[in-house]
Write a protein that binds this DNA or RNA. Structure first.
Lengths: 345, 345
DNA sequence: TTGTAAGCGTTATCAT
DNA sequence: ATGATAACGCTTACAA
C-alpha cells in the first residue's frame, strides 16, 4: 500500500523522499543521509552533487522517519489545567523559549479544569521525549506509570513525587508574611478565597494564612472559600462572603484575578477598598499596579518557573543528571494600597 | 541496529511493541492492529485474547509507527510572534480547546519578536498536519512555499494570502468609531501608539484613526509612534510623547497593555487621566474594567479567533472544503471613563 | 476470520 | 568514501 497516496483524512505532502534524492544524485540513500547529518564524511564532490539534488527537489528529511529510526522526537509536552490568564501565559513563555533554545518543540495540552484523561496524557507522552505536568493535572498513579514507562517528567507547581523532578515557587512563608501584614493593619476577619484542595499552591498559601494567625494567637475567622481562578469566580465568591451578616474585613485571594473579582464585588456592593475591605492578590500580574486601588500582592517568578522546568527536563532527557532535583524559587511580597497602606503612586 | 537500545541522547522507553503483543496472544501483528482499530472485525474470542495480552504488557501503539504508516500526525502547529500577555493566552485557549475536541494535539512556536527562521517553520510543518500562522511571524514567500508543499495553512490576524484561509477581527471601523468618539470629546491632539508596519492589526487600526480624522475634516496631529506591545513599551512611548512641547491630549494605544503603560507614564508626569490626557486601549483584557480610570477600549473575540482558526484548519486538513475562506469577526467599542466619559462604575 | 508481507522515510551497521 | 540492508513500529492490501 501507499499511505501517502491513500485516500482518507491524511494530508499527503508533495515532499521528495531520500530515495528520490539518491536517485537524482546517483548515489545510495546512505550517502544522502550522511550528507544531511555528517557532511564531512562524504567526498566534497559527492556531497556537492547530493546537495544540489536535495535542493532541486526541495528535499527535507521526514521527521517521522527520522524519529522512528533514532528513537526520539526532539520535542516535549507541557500540560496545564487551564490556558487562562497571565500565569499560564508567563510560564509557557519561559518554557517555550528555553525549549526552543535547546532545539525542542513544545506540545501543549490543557485539561480544562479537571484532571486530564489518562488517554490524553499517555497519548501526549508518546509524542515527546519528556513531559512537564503542572499542578494537579495528572493523578499520582499516572505520574507513577509515566515513570515506569521511562518518560522523563518534571512537576511544576506541585511537590516532588517519586523520581520526578519538581519546580515551584515558595508559598507558605510569604503567605504568612502577607497575612501578618494584614493582621498588623488591625484586620481581624480575613477570608481566604481559593481552593486548597485544588492545587498545592493554594494549599500552601492557605497554610501560611493559618500560620500567621497562629503566630498572632488568633483563629482564622473563616474556612477557605473555594473558587476558580478567574475574575468571575472571584467575584462570585466575594459576593457570597460580603453579603453574609458577618462579612470579612479582608480578602486574601489565591491570585490577582480572583482579587480583581473581589474588587468588582466590593464596588457592586458599595464597599470601599481598602477602608471597608482589604483585598490582596497573588502573582503580581502587569495590571496589578494599575488597579483601583493598586493591588497588594505577591510576586512570583512565573517566566522563570517555566524556564527552569525546561532546563530540568532537558537534563533528564539527555541523562545529564539522574538524581531527582526539587527547586523552590523565591517569591516576594509587593505592598501597594489595597491592603490599607498608603502607597506612593 | 537497535535505535531504542542504542546509546546517546535518546530516551528509550520500556514500551511493548505490537510484535510482543502478537506473540503473547499467539496471533499475527495484523490481528493485533485490527483489534486496536477495528475491534469488530475480529472474532470475539481472539479479540479477548489480544486485549488481555495488550493489557498485560501495558501496550500502547506507537504514534510514530502509526503516523508513518498512515501519513499524518493528528496534530497541528500554531506560530506566534510572542507568548506574552492576555491576547496570546486567549487565542491559544480557544485554539487548543477546539483542536483537542477534534482529537488533534497542538504544537506551539514563538518567534520572539522577529520573523521565524525558515528552518523553524519548515521543521514545525513537518511535525503536523497543518499550521496556523499569526500576524507577521512568517514571511510571504514562506507561506507560499508551505502552500506548495501541500501544508494546510490558516492565517490569523493577517489578511488572506493566496490559497490560505484567514481569520481576523474587524479593526478599521471600530478604530474610526473610537477616534470619532475622542474627537467628539473635543480632543484634537490624538497620538496613535503602536506599529502599523509591524502588524496588519495595527495598520488597520491606524487606518481607522486616519479615516475618523478625515471624516471630521481634521488632520492627524502626529505620525504613529511605534511601540512594542507590552506595558513597558507603551510607557516609554508615552513618556516620549508627553515630554515633548506639543504634547497630545489623547493616546490611542494599539492594545490594553500599551494603554496601561501610558497610564503609568501619565501618573509619573503628574498628568490626570482623562482630564489632561485621554487614553484608550484595545482588546478589553479582564483588567481593563478595573484600571484607574476604567479603560475605554475595543473588545475583540480573542478566544473565538483561536477557535475559528482551528475549525478552518480542520476543514482544510480533512478536505471538507477546498475554496479559501476569509473570516472577519466582529468587534465592539467599550466606553468606560479613560476617554473622558463619566462612566457608571 | 486471520495471516503474509509490502510499504511509510529515516538511521546506522556492516561490508566493500 | 560509499553501498546494501536491517532495523524502527505500525497499517492495510491481498491471500488463504
Amino acid at each position: 500500500m501507499k499511505a501517502l497516496t491513500a485516500p482518507g483524512a491524511g494530508g499527503r505532502r508533495s515532499t521528495a523522499t531520500i530515495y528520490e534524492v539518491a536517485e537524482r544524485a546517483g548515489v545510495s540513500i546512505a550517502t544522502v543521509s550522511r550528507v544531511q547529518r555528517h557532511a564531512h564524511l562524504v567526498a566534497p564532490e559527492t556531497r556537492e552533487r547530493v546537495q544540489r539534488a536535495a535542493h532541486d527537489l526541495a528535499y527535507r528529511p521526514s521527521r517521522l522517519g527520522r524519529s522512528l529510526a533514532r528513537g526520539h522526537h526532539d520535542s516535549t509536552g507541557i500540560v496545564f489545567p487551564d490556558l487562562t490568564g497571565p500565569y499560564f501565559s508567563a510560564v509557557i513563555l519561559g518554557y517555550e523559549e528555553a525549549s526552543a533554545r535547546q532545539g525542542r518543540s513544545v506540545l501543549i495540552l490543557a485539561t480544562h479544569g479537571r484532571s486530564a484523561s489518562e488517554e490524553q496524557v499517555l497519548d501526549l507522552a508518546d509524542r515527546v521525549d519528556g513531559l512537564v505536568l503542572t499542578g494537579r493535572t495528572v493523578p499520582d498513579h499516572l505520574v507513577e506509570e509515566l515513570g515506569q514507562r521511562g518518560v522523563p517528567v518534571v512537576l511544576l507547581a506541585r511537590p516532588g513525587h517519586g523520581a520526578a523532578d519538581s519546580v515551584r515557587a515558595s508559598n507558605a512563608p510569604v503567605a504568612a508574611e502577607l497575612v501578618a501584614h494584614l493582621l498588623d493593619h488591625g484586620r481581624r476577619r480575613l477570608a481566604f478565597v481559593g481552593d486548597p484542595d485544588g492545587s498545592s499552591d493554594a494549599a500552601e498559601r492557605w497554610s501560611g494564612f493559618l500560620q500567621a494567625h497562629r503566630a498572632a494567637g488568633l483563629a482564622p475567622a473563616y474556612a477557605p472559600t473555594p473558587s476558580g481562578y478567574r475574575e468571575e469566580d472571584g467575584r462570585r465568591a466575594a459576593l457570597g462572603l460580603l453579603r453574609a451578616g458577618d462579612r470579612p474585613d479582608g480578602i486574601v485571594a489565591a491570585n490577582d484575578e480572583i482579587a480583581m473579582g473581589a474588587l468588582r464585588a466590593a464596588r457592586e456592593l458599595g464597599l470601599a477598598v481598602p477602608d471597608d475591605l482589604a483585598v490582596t492578590g497573588w502573582d503580581d500580574i502587569p495590571a496589578a499596579a494599575h488597579l483601583a486601588p493598586p493591588l497588594t500582592t505577591v510576586r512570583q517568578p512565573m517566566v522563570e518557573l517555566g524556564r527552569r522546568a525546561a532546563v530540568l527536563l532537558t537534563e533528564r532527557i539527555e541523562r545529564t543528571r539522574t538524581d531527582p532535583r526539587h527547586e523552590v524559587l523565591p517569591t516576594e511580597l509587593v505592598v501597594r494600597s489595597s491592603c490599607g497602606c498608603v502607597h506612593p503612586t
